[in-house]
Design a protein around this nucleic acid. Structure first.
Lengths: 109, 109
DNA sequence: CAAGCTACTAAACAATGCAAAGTAGCTGAT
DNA sequence: ATCAGCTACTTTGCATTGTTTAGTAGCTTG
């Protein structure tokens, strides 16, 4: 199946939400996403998202040694990221409610 | 704001769901979508979706005169479309539940 | 030293929504 | 009869974003 299209945009918001819970790094974010039910988010999928969020100023980055492997890049959310996330949630909710109205009608998602 | 990405894939499923409710045509589908809460779905957005669904064999097309304007293309769902829609709903639900778990945590969407 | 895990990078690609412009039939007002 | 405005569909070119694949490199363990 092709979930790629359904993930568009959603992933960006979810990654930001994960970082909002506390400073974290790429590999760990993948684990968080999969723990919440997302299927096999590859590294080639996640890292470009982080790069974009960083360039947009929604997250900040700092390098630090890992006790396990190579250097990690730790990300934390910025004030701009926080307000973007708040807006994102509103937009996301609105769209999912519109879609649910058509897809599931009487059911409440 | 840019809802374009959040709509990716969702729109296709919603259009199919609208047609599943009964034979209809492009202009009317746009009305249905907006009635359910979607914002300004342009013609340049919808018609390519219909073309794709048709080519994929998920909907069937027939031309008929309109009492108001130019000829309409009426679309109806095919058996393949029905099973695709059922699968789509499962996938969509799974992804929105995963996203909600991260975005809204304890809240129940 | 090799295997395997951790961790990030980069390039080429495919899918889809969107804006803009165009074609055309029909109706009603001027 | 003409023009505006609504209905209805088409086409082109574009931007964004997730995926695939491959690659680099540190660390631990056998």
């Amino acid at each position: 199946m092709d979930n790629a299209q359904l993930l568009k945009g959603v992933l960006e918001g979810c990654v930001l939400a994960v970082i909002d819970k506390g400073e974290t790094y790429g590999y760990e974010i993948i684990g968080e996403l999969e723990k919440s039910g997302f299927d096999e988010i590859g590294e080639g999928t996640l890292y470009p998202v982080l790069t974009r969020l960083d360039k947009s100023g929604l997250i900040a980055c700092r390098r630090a040694k890992s006790p396990l492997g190579p250097v990690r890049k730790y990300y934390s959310i910025t004030p701009q990221g926080r307000s973007f996330l708040a807006e994102f949630k509103k937009r996301y909710r609105r769209i999912t409610e519109s879609a649910a109205a058509i897809l599931f009608e009487e059911e409440i998602l």
